[in-house]
Write a protein that binds this DNA or RNA. Structure first.
Lengths: 151, 151
DNA sequence: CCTTGACCTAAAGTTAGGTTTAGAAATTAC
DNA sequence: GTAATTTCTAAACCTAACTTTAGGTCAAGG
């Protein structure tokens, strides 16, 4: 009941909408660092609600958990982040998001070209873009190639 | 050597850039249907190069394999797809892509608002958008909520 | 004919991001 | 003070999209 006892994991879960198991998992991934009370239970700061909200938003933008950890590492470790701190890392997110949008717009333009020519798989097809790193994660084929021009 | 013996799986792999194992996997998922030669080996049509190229492109757009199978089911089964057939299903892809882009643009606008206010996690924060289905697949938290206004 | 390389199947392994389970200990509620 | 919740850890399980492995078979070159 004392003011500075912090939130239990269940309370944090209710405040963020995350599952308790997800919060523990994020801790294992280094995204959040609670302290322990006398009985060994995790206790969280109120600022951690915001931290986890940020994690969820960044996931919507397609960041992996290691990437999010990286972004969060720019927050000050020694004090509660201020709105300015959050603003700073949000600008980084914005850059990431812009890049994803650009990639998709490029894909769309290329697809328009392909719709026009009906090709989809010719070597000259603009959808041949080996450098696209917008894929969700770890799977999928290596590159995009195609047919010989005839056929 | 005969004209209509079809491509062996290794040849198809080289033509598409996919791994042999991936092509077999796609078959198991119903994305491609080779026939078998006398010795039981898979043989593919030249049109399958294009089919697999389409699979790869659709994956870049974030479609799952079941979704891609669904899209491909609109191709004629009884004959080799024409450029017009491909054009028709590419237009469907285009719609899917447009929707993804719209979602990201909306997220970006909301993030801009949040950068402005420095909030990121207030209930009134526009990033609270439970209806976003643009997430890559099957994982991630349920909804986005936050902090009480103070703190 | 024989060897080598391509191909076969089935099953297990991989990564990301979690969830579920089991059994025990801490907290809270009455 | 006891019962009902929570929480704890560790390990197993889950899905998607593949890859790897193991133990054989097929096909092509010399």
């Amino acid at each position: 009941m004392a003011v500075s006892e912090g939130l239990a994991i269940g309370a944090l879960a209710r405040r963020t909408g995350l599952a308790v198991s997800a919060i523990r998992y994020y801790e294992a991934q280094g995204l959040i660092t609670p302290w322990r009370n006398a009985g060994g239970q995790r206790r969280y700061q109120r600022a951690d609600i915001r931290r986890l909200s940020f994690v969820m938003i960044a996931q919507q933008f397609g960041l992996t958990l290691p990437e999010i950890r990286e972004v969060l590492s720019d927050l000050p470790g020694n004090r509660t982040p201020t709105p300015q701190d959050w603003k700073a890392i949000s600008i980084g997110l914005r850059a990431h998001l812009d890049q994803r949008i650009d990639t998709l717009l490029r894909l769309r333009d290329n697809l328009d070209g392909c719709i026009g020519c009906g090709c989809l798989s010719l070597p000259k097809c603009a959808l041949y873009n080996p450098d696209d790193r917008a894929k969700s994660h770890g799977s999928g084929p290596r590159y995009l190639m195609g047919d010989a021009p005839e056929t």
